[in-house]
Design a protein around this nucleic acid. Structure first.
Length: 887
RNA sequence: GGGCGAUUAGCUCAGCUGGUAGAGCACUUGCUCGACAAGCAAGGGGUCACUGGUUCAAGUCCAGUAUCGCCCACCA
C-alpha cells in the first residue's frame, strides 16, 4: 500500500489547479481503453456524435456527465468498458458554415466547383472541426480516443454506401418524383423530421373562380394564393349537394384564364371554407394526390429558390412572398377577391435555417420504412429495448406505427454521394463507377442521418467482421436527448435489426433538455447558453458534472448557474475532510491492519453500517438511472454523517496520539481503530463519488494511503453484509438526538458557545449505558462539561429540559436559565405534542382503522401514542417544577 | 385534432411498492473551539393547483377542471 501524502493537500481546494493535470494522468495509464475484465459482458456506450461544427453546450455537458458517470462506475465494477467517441459530418449544418465563410470572402461554392468545395470543407474540418472534443477533455470524460470515428471517414463511408446498395437491392430504397419538403434557402430536400411546424397568424383568402360558359363562379378558400398560378383543377366533396351540378364543368382560372376542371374528390371537407378547393398538384402534397386521382397536370411555378418561374406569366421573377402580395392585389383589382379572413395555421420551417418550407415536386430517393419499422416496434413492445423514462416508449411506438417513407437525398455537396450511376436509360447502383465510358454519378448526397443511424455498429468496423464488432455489439446503453428520438434513436434500432439482426442497445436513457431560467431552450441565436468552459473554469469540472447529473429525470432542466456552487462546495468539503483525516492518520501504516484486530466502538460500527447503506443506495440508484438520488445519497452520507458526526466523534480518539504519557494498550488499539475506520470510510466515499467527481476524488485518493495506481480503476465498493447493523444505527440515533437536544437548549437559553455546561440525563438503564459508552466522544459535540447519568435521581432544581425518546435531558443552570423563556418554550413544545397526540388518539379510536390497517401499522401508532404521552407527561413535570421554584 | 408532461417551502426540485411532508439555495439567530466562513451550530417557513372519487388512511391511486410547457398531425 502506498502511504498517505499530507503535503498534497496543503493548498486550499482549487479545481482549476488540480483538474487539468488529471486527464493526461488517466490517459498515460490507459484508463480509457477497454481491458478484458472478469468475464462479464463488456459495457459499451457510443457517444451521440456531435456535429463537426459543434462546440460544447450545456446540453452536451449534461449528456456527457451522465454517460461518463455510468462508464466510470461500470469500469470500477470490473466490466470491460468502451465509450466510443466520434463526430457527425452534419451535411447541411457544415455546408452552411463553410458557405457562409466563403460568402464573407465574396465567393460561393459554385466558384469552387464541387470538388474544390468539398476540399474546402475538409480543410475547414481539419482546422476548426471537433473543437467540442478539445473542450470536452476538460470535463474529464473517458472515451477511448483511439477508436474515434467520423461519419465521413473512409471505412464509415463504405458502410453507408454499402447500406444504400443493400437496401436498393432489397427494394427498400427507391427513386421517385414526389412532393417533398424543400428549403428554398438551403436549396435541398428535407425529411419530414427536419421540418419544424410553427403556428403562424396568416389569412384565408376567398377567391372567385368563374365557371366557363356561365355568369356564375365558385369561391375557393386558400392560405397560399400565389399557388393559384399552378392550379390545374378545382375540387369539391362528392357528398356536397351545393356543388353537384358543377362537377364536370370547367372553371376559368383568374388572371391566367386557364380552363381547369371541377372534380369531386373525397379529400375535400365540405364544412371547411366554402367547400371548394383549388388544386395545385405541384405545390401541395394533398393536391398532388388529388391530381393523381383525376389525371390533372402538375404545373411547377417556382424554381428551387422559391422564385416564380416562366409558368408564372407576369409574375415570373418574383420571390414567392412578393408574388403573393402582387397576386392578391391583382385579384382584388380584377374583382376576384371575395373576402379575406384572419387565419391561424401551422407553417413548416427549415430546422436548420428557419426558412419557410416549400412543398416541391422533384425527383428524390426514398427509403421504404414500414418493413424496417416492424422489428423495431416489436422490440419495444417486447421490452428488448427499454426506454427510461418509460413514457417515451409510447411516443416512439406512435411514430413507428404511422411511419412514412424517408426522403434521403439531399441537394448538397458535403456528404456521402449517392452511389448511383446513369448512362442514358441505364441505372446502376455500385460503390464505385461501373465499367465503361459515359457514366454520370447521381449529383445528390445522402441525409446525414442516413449515416448516423448505423452508428452503434459502423463505428466498430461493420461491414467487416472485426473483433471490435464481435465484442462490443450490441452496445449496452444509449444516452441521448428525446429531441432526436425519431431522427436517430428509432432509426438506429431499425438499422440494428435490419443489418445486425438485433437491437443496437438494450436500454435508452433520455436526458433532460437544458433550458434557461425562463424556460427557453438554450440556443446560439438566443445567446442564452452559458459558456460551458467558463462554468468549468469558475466552478470546476467536478462541480459542473455533479450538478448537471442531478437534473430531474425526464423533465426539462431550468439551468441556474447558482446551483453549480453546491458541487464546488461539496468538493471543497471533501478536500478538507481528507486533509483532516490524513493529518490524524499520523503516518500510521494501515496496510497490515485487519478489521478483526481492531476494537470497533459504537461510533465505528455506526459509520460502517451507514457506509454499507450508502453503498447500497448509490449502486441501486445508478442501476435504475436515478442519478439525482445516487448523487444525493453519497452527498448526504459524506457530509452529514461522515463529516458532521463521525469525524467529530473521532477527534478525541485521534487526540490520544498527542498524550504526554504513554498510551495504554487499549488506547493504542482504540487510536488505531479510529484511524483505520476513518480512512476506510473515506476511501469508500471517494470510490462512490468518483464517477460523479472524478478529478477531486482521484486527487484525494492519491493523497491517502491506497493500493493500486488510479482510483479510476479501483474496485467499486460492495456493501459488506457484516457492516449492516440496524441496532447500532438506532443506538447512535438516540445519542445524536441527545446531543441535538442539548445544543438546542443551549441555543434557546443563549448560552455562550464557548461555555461548557453540566448535563443531567434521566433515562432507562440501556439509555444511560449507551451514553456512558460514548461519553468521551459526545461531550465535545455539545460542549458538555460533565454528564451525570441519573437513573432514579431527583430532577435538578432549576433546569432547562427536553425529552428524547423518553429520556429527560436537563441543563441545570440555576441563575443562568431564563425561566420565562424556558416556560414559554416548554409550553410551545407541549402544545405541538398535544396536536400530534390528538391525531394519534383519533386514529386509534377509529374501529375501521383498527380492523383494516395492517397490524404493524396499528402497533406503530400505539407505540407512538405511548411515546407521546410519556413525553408530554415529562414536559408537564418540568413545567410544574419551574412554577414551584419561582413562586 | 390527438398525445404527453408539469403544478409540493421565497427559488430550483426530491418524495421509487398509499401509513408522522424532504434537500439545496435563500431567510433568521449565534459562532475566528487547530479540516473546512466554499464552514459550524440552532431555527423559521408548506390547507402538496382545484373539485370529486377509491381507501381505515391520499402529495402518492382514479376521474374531471384550470394554468403552463412540449411533441405529433397532408387544419385548403
Amino acid at each position: 500500500m502506498r502511504p498517505g501524502n499530507p503535503e498534497a493537500l496543503s493548498a486550499p481546494y482549487d479545481p482549476s489547479r488540480i483538474e487539468p493535470a488529471r486527464y493526461p494522468f488517466w490517459e498515460e495509464r490507459g484508463v480509457f481503453q477497454p481491458r478484458a475484465g472478469d468475464g462479464k459482458n463488456p459495457f459499451v456506450i457510443a457517444i451521440p456524435p456531435p456535429n463537426v461544427t459543434g462546440s460544447l453546450t450545456m446540453g452536451h455537458l449534461l449528456g456527457e456527465s451522465i454517460r461518463d458517470c455510468i462508464i466510470r462506475w461500470q469500469r470500477m465494477e470490473g466490466r470491460e468498458t468502451l465509450y466510443i467517441p466520434g463526430m457527425d459530418h452534419a451535411g447541411i449544418a457544415t455546408q452552411n458554415v463553410v458557405e457562409k465563410k466563403l460568402k464573407d470572402e465574396n465567393r460561393t461554392r459554385h466558384d469552387l466547383g464541387r470538388e474544390g468545395f468539398v476540399a474546402e470543407v475538409w480543410k475547414w474540418k481539419e482546422q476548426y472541426g471537433g473543437l467540442i472534443f478539445k473542450q470536452e477533455r476538460r470535463l474529464g470524460t473517458s472515451p477511448d480516443w483511439s477508436r474515434e470515428r467520423f461519419t465521413l471517414d473512409e471505412g464509415y463511408s463504405h458502410a453507408v454506401l454499402h447500406v444504400f446498395k443493400t437496401l436498393y437491392d432489397e427494394g427498400l430504397v427507391y427513386r421517385g418524383r414526389y412532393i417533398v419538403n424543400w428549403c428554398p434557402r438551403c436549396q435541398t430536400a428535407l425529411s419530414d423530421e427536419e421540418v419544424d411546424h410553427r403556428t403562424t397568424q396568416g389569412s384565408l383568402w376567398y377567391i372567385r373562380y368563374p365557371i366557363k360558359d356561365s355568369d356564375k363562379h365558385v369561391v375557393v378558400a386558400t392560405t397560399r394564393p400565389e399557388t393559384m398560378l399552378g392550379d390545374t383543377g378545382v375540387a369539391v366533396s362528392p357528398r356536397d349537394t351545393r356543388y353537384k351540378k358543377l362537377v364536370g364543368r370547367m372553371a376559368v382560372l383568374p388572371l391566367v384564364r386557364r380552363e381547369i376542371p371541377i372534380v369531386a374528390d373525397p379529400m375535400v371537407d365540405p364544412k371547411f371554407g366554402t367547400g371548394a378547393v383549388k388544386v395545385t398538384p405541384a405545390h401541395d402534397p394533398n393536391d398532388f394526390e388529388t391530381g393523381k386521382r383525376h389525371g390533372l397536370p402538375e404545373l411547377v411555378i417556382m424554381d428551387e429558390a422559391g422564385v416564380m418561374n416562366e409558368n408564372a406569366g407576369d409574375f415570373r421573377g418574383l420571390d414567392r412572398f412578393d408574388a403573393r402580395k402582387r397576386i392578391v392585389a391583382a385579384l382584388q383589382d380584377a374583382g376576384y377577391l371575395e373576402k379575406v379572413e384572419p387565419y391561424e395555421n401551422s407553417v413548416g420551417h427549415c430546422s436548420r435555417c428557419h426558412t419557410v418550407i416549400e412543398p416541391y415536386l422533384s425527383w428524390q430517393w426514398f427509403v421504404k420504412m414500414a418493413p424496417l419499422a416492424a422489428p423495431a416496434i416489436e422490440a419495444a413492445r417486447k421490452g428488448r429495448v427499454k426506454m427510461f423514462p418509460a413514457r417515451w416508449k409510447k411516443v416512439y411506438l406512435n411514430w413507428l406505427e404511422n411511419i412514412r417513407d424517408w426522403c434521403i437525398s439531399r441537394q448538397l455537396w458535403w456528404g456521402h454521394r449517392i452511389p448511383v450511376w446513369y448512362r442514358g436509360d441505364e441505372v446502376v447502383v455500385s460503390l464505385g463507377p461501373p465499367e465503361g465510358e459515359g457514366w454520370r454519378q447521381d449529383e445528390d448526397v445522402l441525409d446525414t442521418w442516413f449515416s448516423s443511424w448505423l452508428w452503434p455498429f459502423a463505428t466498430l468496423g461493420w461491414p467487416e467482421k472485426t473483433p471490435d464488432l464481435e465484442r462490443f455489439y450490441p452496445n449496452s446503453l444509449m444516452v441521448t436527448g428525446s429531441d432526436i428520438i425519431f431522427f436517430w434513436v428509432a432509426r438506429m434500432i431499425m438499422a440494428g435489426y435490419h443489418f445486425m439482426g438485433e437491437a443496437p442497445f438494450a436500454h435508452v436513457y433520455f436526458t433532460s433538455i437544458v433550458r434557461d431560467a425562463q424556460g427557453r431552450k438554450m440556443s446560439k441565436s438566443l445567446r442564452n447558453s452559458p459558456d460551458p468552459l467558463e462554468m468549468i473554469g469558475k466552478y470546476g469540472a467536478d462541480a459542473v458534472r455533479f450538478t448537471m447529473i442531478q437534473t430531474p429525470t425526464g423533465q426539462d432542466l431550468l439551468f441556474d448557474e447558482k446551483r453549480l456552487e453546491t458541487g464546488k462546495f461539496f468538493a471543497n468539503k471533501m478536500w478538507n475532510a481528507t486533509k483532516l483525516v490524513l493529518m490524524r492518520l499520523g503516518g500510521e501504516d494501515l496496510s497490515s491492519v485487519r478489521e478483526s484486530q481492531l476494537t470497533l466502538t459504537l461510533a465505528d460500527r455506526w459509520i460502517l453500517s451507514r457506509l454499507a447503506n450508502a453503498t447500497k443506495d448509490v449502486t441501486r440508484n445508478l442501476k435504475t438511472y436515478r442519478f439525482a438520488e445516487a448523487a444525493q445519497a453519497i452527498y448526504h452520507f459524506a457530509w452529514n454523517e461522515y463529516c458532521d458526526w463521525y469525524l467529530e466523534m473521532a477527534k478525541p480518539r485521534w487526540a490520544l496520539a498527542e498524550k504526554d504519557e504513554a498510551m495504554t494498550p487499549q488506547e493504542r488499539v482504540d487510536l488505531r481503530t479510529a484511524r483505520w475506520v476513518s480512512w476506510k470510510v473515506l476511501d469508500g466515499i471517494l470510490r462512490l463519488l468518483h464517477p460523479f467527481m472524478p478529478h477531486v476524488t482521484e486527487e484525494l485518493w492519491q493523497a491517502i494511503p491506497h493500493d493500486g495506481e488510479t482510483l479510476a480503476m479501483a474496485a467499486w465498493p460492495r456493501a459488506k453484509k457484516a457492516w449492516f447493523d440496524a441496532a447500532v444505527e438506532r443506538e447512535v440515533g438516540f445519542l445524536q438526538e441527545v446531543v441535538v437536544a442539548v445544543r438546542n437548549l443551549r441555543a434557546e437559553q443563549k448560552i455562550a458557545p464557548g461555555r461548557t455546561v453540566p448535563v443531567v440525563v434521566r433515562g432507562t438503564e440501556a439509555q444511560l449505558e449507551l451514553l456512558g459508552r460514548l461519553e468521551g466522544q459526545i461531550l465535545p459535540l455539545a460542549r458538555i462539561e460533565s454528564l451525570t447519568l441519573a437513573r432514579d435521581g431527583a430532577r435538578p432544581a432549576v433546569a432547562a429540559s427536553a425529552v428524547v425518546q423518553g429520556a429527560e435531558v436537563f441543563l441545570p443552570l440555576a441563575g443562568l436559565v431564563d425561566l420565562d423563556e424556558e416556560r414559554a418554550r416548554l409550553a410551545r413544545e407541549a402544545e405541538k405534542l398535544l396536536t400530534d397526540l390528538e391525531g394519534v388518539k383519533k386514529k386509534l379510536r377509529n374501529q375501521d382503522f383498527l380492523g383494516k390497517a395492517r397490524p404493524e401499522i396499528v402497533e406503530k401508532e400505539r407505540a407512538r401514542l405511548a411515546q407521546l404521552e410519556e413525553t408530554l407527561e415529562k414536559l408537564r413535570k418540568a413545567q410544574e417544577s419551574l412554577s414551584v421554584k419561582t413562586d
